[in-house]
Amino acid sequence: MPDLSDLALFQLVATSSSLTNAAQKADVPLPTMSRRMAHLERSTGRRLFLRGKGGFQLTKDGQSLADELTGLPELQNRITRWLSKTEHTPVVRITAGLWTSQFLAQSLPAIAPQTWVPSFVPSNAQLDIARREADIGIRNSEPDHPWLARQKLRNITYAIYAKSDAVSGFVSLPGHMPLPPSQAWLHREFSSKIALTATDMRLCLDLARSGHGRIVLPCFIGARDEFLTQLSDPIEDLTHDEWLVSHHDTRHDPPIRAALSALKTALLSTR
């Protein structure tokens, strides 16, 4: 069964002078438009276009489909009106590491618009945005998938923090657990000085706040903590860029676009 959104894009192609013009009207990247039209042909089992030097021309089946879609704009308008009358607010699923998720959970309510609500999927695993396991991801490295849109946000630094009267050892995750880069660095560089462990980084933070030891934190978390003082320069081995990632096909949807803007504003405010 053809996707309704693909049919709407097809109608734009059918009524435009070129695929490029249709892509511009839809505010969709040209490669995405071409890919969506190829998907529509596969889903219908019909050849809808003649592709050549003259661009995309409708075949007989393509013209027949275009005729059948004459009432589609009015249907879309009716659906839009129906949606506007409901109280449902679109949910945007956001995945990020623990500290970024914590910061956003504290910062977004003051700036998030009412056209969307966040649903946090805190995870250090890179959920597959291409398979729609999440709508937006905040990543520690640039994605290599061409169908993912990306924006480089900021440079993330880490440092050692502690309460002023803390003991000299470190608080850390135990070494037998899968370790994020900051904890792996700590075990590699200061394994003999790890005095206390906990299986949750939030517990590690609470222990450090109570003076049970030092902790390695991203500076955007440590600098905001009223109980902790930065004891080291930024750790070069842990410094990395941060990327805001979404799917090319959904990044222009109003809720996703609004969420991307709000996330960017919140995250860049920590620099």
Rank of each mutant, 00 (worst) to 15 (best):
D249V: 08
L148M: 12
L12T: 10
R188Y: 06
P29A: 12
R251A: 05
S17Q: 10
S64R: 06
A112R: 05
L203P: 02
Q24R: 15
R93T: 11
L205H: 14
W116K: 00
K193N: 14
A112V: 05
A223R: 08
R132I: 00
R46L: 10
M1V: 08
T80Q: 13
L244N: 01
T86W: 03
K60L: 02
L75N: 02
N140C: 03
A105E: 13
L153D: 13
A166F: 00
S168L: 02
M33Y: 06
T15A: 11
G175N: 12
L65R: 06
P2F: 00
L231Y: 01
P118G: 07
M1C: 03
S172G: 09
E236P: 08
A258N: 01
Q126I: 11
W99G: 04
R81H: 11
I111L: 15
E74Y: 06
A162H: 01
G137H: 01
L12Q: 13
G52L: 05
Q11W: 05
D253C: 05
I235N: 11
A112E: 01
A14W: 06
S123A: 13
E226M: 11
H187S: 01
V13I: 15
W185P: 00
F190C: 14
L238I: 14
C219E: 15
Q126D: 11
I111C: 09
L72E: 04
W116Y: 07
Q63S: 11
P113C: 08
P143A: 09
L173P: 13
M1D: 05
T199Q: 13
F120Y: 15
S64D: 03
N21Y: 00
L228K: 08
V121N: 10
T59M: 04
D135K: 02
I256Q: 10
T270Y: 03
L4D: 08
D165L: 03
L98E: 12
E133C: 04
K53A: 12
H39W: 05
R42V: 10
T89V: 14
L72P: 02
D128Y: 06
Q230H: 02
V13W: 08
S43P: 01
H187A: 03
R150Q: 04
A266I: 06
L104K: 05
N124R: 10
Q57K: 13
L127W: 12
D206W: 06
L98G: 10
F49C: 02
L7G: 02
S192G: 00
A125C: 02
V121A: 10
S210P: 00
P178L: 14
P178A: 15
A125H: 10
D135N: 04
D253P: 01
G71W: 05
R150I: 01
G71M: 09
R150T: 13
H145F: 02
T80E: 13
T197Q: 14
S123V: 09
P146A: 08
I129N: 00
D200P: 09
K60W: 00
D237Q: 15
Q24V: 08
T89K: 00
Q63D: 09
L98P: 07
K85R: 15
Q114N: 15
L9Q: 14
D206H: 13
D27I: 04
D165E: 07
G222C: 03
S164K: 07
S119N: 01
